[in-house]
Design a protein around this nucleic acid. Structure first.
Lengths: 341, 341
DNA sequence: TCAGGACATGTAATCGATTTCATAATCGTC
DNA sequence: GACGATTATGAAATCGATTACATGTCCTGA
């Protein structure tokens, strides 16, 4: 058991005032006379007093915490985002809770339940697979304006979304390959049903169509953002009659798996196949060949989502601009080159 | 404001019993008659009641949360560990809080402060740079047996440590290189002052000495677990008069940076230089060349630390075995080969 | 001089649970 | 048949803060 420390009563006694006054010094010092203020502060120091959060939270009906819902904590993609979120809350008195929506067994009401339990004041969801039913439940609890989505989102729901400009990223990638002279461009998608999959794939398909490029269906290869799926895709491509000369991958990890697979199959990158990734994770600059990719500012994404949530938590009026997408950037490195054949 | 939901009083009224009885059904159902039990459960269902955690915590003097102290959340190395920790707490009612000890501005008493605020019941520290003063403060609060260290630790402190068998890893790495025929083996260390740096470096040096291998001081190169530091080290090695034929890196990321740098400098891996990493992150199997490395089971490390902390939190008696190190494993891939010169 | 406002502070209710202690009912035993 | 033990339940205190309301003092203006 943690040694019990001084309570507000102890401070009151030491400063020779009432507990109400101590509380006032803590929460609105300006209504207390300068003299008492000082006396109380002195008493706080001498007793080593810290407010008991549970007691304060009970009385003020807040939780002092926010929840981050991550689909799969094990993916390194999220680390930089989490760092950004943590940074965004560092100066506040909110505690940052995290849950892995995959490893959590009771997936249903992982979110609404935490609101109900009065454990959290708000949430940042990185998981686009949350059920509409559950979100609806949160809305009915009055938590509708205390949820923001980050990176992913749920189609048709009104929550604010902080995410990169995925369509623009796809456009940049295809544009870059086109400018190099590529006409036969394939794409490895994310997992089916994922909103990012859709955004990037559609952006890619639209741009390819706009440029009048061929679009055989087998050049859209299903992946899942993982190394393995890139590796699998390489095998598919190696076995194709009509091979693409360039591949746009929905994630850097996919690109690495793809390149490893292509090299193992005897093709060279970028000489035989150019590869573009998405994310610009730290590794990308050090892979061999260094990866041409679309940079997402993951730390900024995290920080921004924290700001937006804090903003919603502090003000009660419901007037909010929709969030504009975070810009992406094309980073040209060594994995792309003009086609040789 | 979150819509206020049913309280224990509402349930009591609905079930026609006292609040005490409802509380009993919640916490020790066996002392309540089967009949009332059922009536109360029914009332809970019909009112949609959930216990208010703040109220419960206030009364029971617990926090219902644990804190994970991460030195730098942005490092992908931690993601798998966090997943393991999260898994370990998934079935419990503990909330998992995370803080980045770097981004947090008020570094001092980041830990003790949370205990004092009654925000946490225990902590898992991944940061070996916590000050002894702060740890001492925690001990004085009575939180001494509610802290466990994971991966890193603070020298001379009595807290339980869950970590991989670093010395054994170093031994395996050097042994593998030796068996291949290497005699000139270099090492890229972690940051100075880090306990892992010491453990791995010392293990490496000891094994090299045991085998009677040459040990010029310039073959111990300071790094910091980062890609960049591996890349820097490559430049150093390229400029050496007497080059090592093999390098044991203190982390996979370092190895990637090193390999990229060596290749850029015109050396081949493994033909000219063999490289061994440490960690076996997911990328390692897909790097080209695939990385020979020492596998740490990061998810297990996380899960195990959760178990150990939960164990300490549940029992009050202070009798605990010291934790034994988690075994590591040599994974041989393509980045090592017999020396050619 | 006195009503009324501003200001500083104290008293006590309150948030929503758990838990101690008291009470009532039932039971078994001699 | 009476008494102590056992069992089931309720009344009220409690955890440690915040805050509505009351109180007292001083100041100002008519």
């Amino acid at each position: 058991m943690i040694q019990k420390s001084a309570t507000i009563h102890d401070v009151a006694r030491a400063a020779n005032v009432s507990v109400a006054t101590v509380s006032r010094v803590l929460t609105k010092p300006d209504v207390v006379s300068e003299q008492t203020n000082e006396a109380v502060r002195q008493a706080i120091r001498s007793t080593g007093y810290r407010v008991n959060q549970a007691a304060r939270n009970l009385r003020t009906q807040r939780a002092g915490a926010v929840l981050i819902l991550v689909p799969n904590l094990g993916k390194p993609f999220y680390s930089e985002i989490l760092a950004g979120i943590s940074e965004g809350f560092a100066e506040t008195d909110y505690a940052v809770l995290i849950t892995d929506t995959e490893s959590s067994p009771i997936q249903e009401s992982a979110l609404a339940g935490n609101f109900l339990d009065r454990r959290i004041d708000g949430a940042i969801a990185l998981d686009g697979r949350l059920s509409s039913a559950e979100l609806q439940e949160c809305v009915q609890l009055g938590a509708g304006d205390r949820i923001v989505f980050l990176c992913e989102w749920v189609e048709g729901e009104p929550f604010p979304v902080i995410s990169s400009d995925n369509a623009e990223g796809a456009r940049l990638a295809i544009g870059h390959l086109y400018a190099l002279g590529h006409r036969k461009i394939a794409h490895i998608t994310g997992p089916s049903g994922n909103v990012l999959t859709t955004a990037r794939r559609d952006g890619m398909v639209a741009e390819r169509a706009r440029l009048g490029l061929p679009a055989p269906p087998q050049w859209i290869i299903r992946g899942d953002f993982s190394l393995e799926s890139g590796h699998e895709a390489a095998k598919r491509i190696l076995g194709m009659d009509e091979r693409p000369t360039a591949v746009f991958c929905s994630a850097d990890m996919v690109a690495f798996g793809l390149i490893a697979g292509l090299l193992a199959g005897g093709l060279r990158v970028p000489e035989d196949v150019s590869v573009v990734g998405f994310d610009d994770i730290e590794m990308s600059a050090y892979y061999v060949p260094a990866l041409t990719t679309i940079r997402q500012d993951r730390r900024l994404l995290g920080r921004r989502s924290a700001e937006v949530l804090l903003d919603r938590l502090s003000q009660k009026d419901g007037n909010h601009e929709p969030e504009s997408p975070i810009p992406v950037e094309l980073i040209v490195r060594a994995s792309t080159a003009p086609p040789t054949s």
